[in-house]
């Protein structure tokens, strides 16, 4: 996210080192260019939530809680449930996060994760109608950053999908029949890339992120479709670079998806 203050100074001294490594095909933490950091997912972490997942992507740690409550449908979609997405960059997670209303970084992050889930139709919204035009289930996806070491886009995207997949619609609590599993029918996975000099690496860590000239997140689903993209930062990409990044995202996304799904519904590679 922001590269200001102390992190910027550290980054400046590491810049040439990271560039030098990249030239030799290496990264500061020893990964290959397309290798993500280790992913650890703990679902059901928050019992009070209707679905939750604590995700560690290397040292980056995010917690997503899903709450599901009855609410009014939007007038133009009386027969569909509703989802909303929010991110809190709480100051506990990084010296660069400040308390207060959501920063533009937090808003962008939430909207990019939201887009991946919404556009892939992850949740079967037609199954979330209680009474058409009157009452539908509203799915709140709240993302809490607990430790910021780079690439919140992927950590949040993974955690949101895992939490949704873990979620139960609490129908009994509200007197609308039996609880049922939230109908998750697609599995979008964002993969973020950082451009460092002329090299492009997947899942940038904090050091890489702080010196990256440009960022590109590509969210793909289990059918090999592309559901969302978001370019960020002050640099640019050539069209060839974008095409390669999309292809890399498809293959990395596949691996990440099978980790999220624990092999159950995941593709076997």
């Amino acid at each position: 996210m922001t590269t200001k203050f102390s992190e910027g100074v550290v980054a400046e001294s590491k810049r040439s080192y990271i560039h030098k490594l990249a030239k030799e095909g290496m990264r500061i933490d020893g990964r290959d260019f397309d290798e993500t950091r280790p992913i650890k997912i703990t679902t059901g972490f928050i019992k009070r939530a209707d679905g939750s997942a604590l995700v560690e992507l290397g040292d980056t740690k995010v917690l997503v809680g899903v709450k599901i409550e009855p609410g009014e449908p939007f007038p133009d979609t009386p027969n569909l449930g509703i989802m909303t997405t929010n991110v809190e960059l709480v100051p506990l997670a990084s010296p660069t996060f400040e308390p207060g209303p959501p920063s533009e970084e937090a808003i962008e992050l939430a909207r990019v994760v939201d887009r991946g889930i919404r556009e892939s139709h992850t949740i079967d919204m037609e199954k979330l109608v209680i009474e058409e035009g009157e009452k539908v289930w509203v799915v709140f996806i709240d993302m809490h950053i607990l430790d910021y070491h780079g690439n919140l886009f992927d950590a949040c995207g993974i955690a949101a999908l895992a939490a949704l997949n873990d979620a139960t619609v609490p129908a009994e609590r509200f007197g609308f029949g039996e609880d049922f599993k939230l109908p998750v029918v697609h599995y979008p996975v964002p993969v973020t890339f950082a451009k460092i000099g002329e090299w492009i690496v997947a899942d940038p860590n904090l050091d890489e992120e702080s010196i990256a000239s440009a960022r590109l997140t590509v969210t793909t689903n289990e059918e090999g479709k592309i559901n969302a993209m978001q370019k960020g930062l002050f640099g640019t990409f050539s069209y060839d670079e974008v095409k390669k990044v999309i292809n890399r995202s498809l293959s990395i996304g596949k691996k990440v998806r099978s980790i999220i799904l624990g092999g159950e519904n995941g593709e076997e590679n």
């Binding site: 556009e119 590109l216 479709k225 592309i226 559901n227 993209m229 640019t236 990409f237 974008v242």
Partner: peptide
């Protein structure tokens, strides 16, 4: 130069 300065996408598309 053909440099891409802004790129976003939403929807459902094949490559």
């Amino acid at each position: 130069t053909g440099d891409i300065a802004l790129l976003q996408m939403d929807g459902d598309l094949t490559y």
